[in-house]
């Protein structure tokens, strides 16, 4: 991340946001391809033939496919919201905008509900296919929920920032 020595704060955050936007675009492209592959795998497992049917060619194939499909789709949706928020952050005059705060809130809701879903699905799928998921407490799902709550806090901070920005603009 090359910055001028005396880059302003605005230039600093816009530069970093551009990198995050770039990462998100790349990540979303990979996740799109993965989710397509996983969905085809699930369908192939259900009908018992076709491409990717051999991907998880064992008794627990369908459950493994469902397990990975859940996470791939969850992260695809989350990265999409992240990409949109950081695109707006890198291209607008101020980071404190309603649409950025709304985007962060949507991301937080996806992560919170996705994490909660993971904590229910992982033990269920673990009982069907012991190689995936975990019995009892699912730490990964809990981690996703904590991340969701963090983003919820940041969305509230951004909303506060919007009001501050509005007051500053009105004063000017």
């Amino acid at each position: 991340m090359k910055l001028r020595k005396n880059a302003t704060i605005e230039e600093q955050y816009k530069n970093v946001c551009k990198y995050i936007h770039g990462f998100s675009v790349g990540g979303e492209a990979i996740l799109c391809l993965l989710s397509l592959a996983m969905l085809v795998s699930v369908v192939a497992q259900l009908i018992g033939q076709g491409p990717f049917a051999e991907m998880f060619a064992d008794d627990s194939g369908i459950w493994k496919s469902l397990y990975y499909t859940y996470y791939v789709l969850l992260f695809l949706i989350a990265v999409n919201f992240l990409r949109i928020a950081f695109k707006k952050l890198s291209s607008s005059d101020s980071p404190f905008r309603e649409d950025v705060a709304t985007g962060m809130r949507r991301l937080s809701l996806v992560l919170i509900w996705g994490g909660a879903g993971s904590m229910i699905i992982a033990p269920l799928l673990h009982s069907k296919a012991p190689v995936v998921g975990s019995s009892g407490f699912n730490l990964f799902g809990f981690c996703i929920m904590v991340a969701g709550l963090m983003f919820d806090a940041f969305s509230l901070i951004f909303k506060y920032g919007c009001k501050l920005q509005q007051e500053s603009d009105e004063t000017l």
């Binding site: 007051e167 500053s168 004063t171």
Partner: peptide
Amino acid sequence: FLGVLFKALSYIFSYGSKLQQES
């Protein structure tokens, strides 16, 4: 990815602090 994300947030908070100070 997470490290860069929090770095971006730290810059945004610095901008917000500047705004708060002016307010």
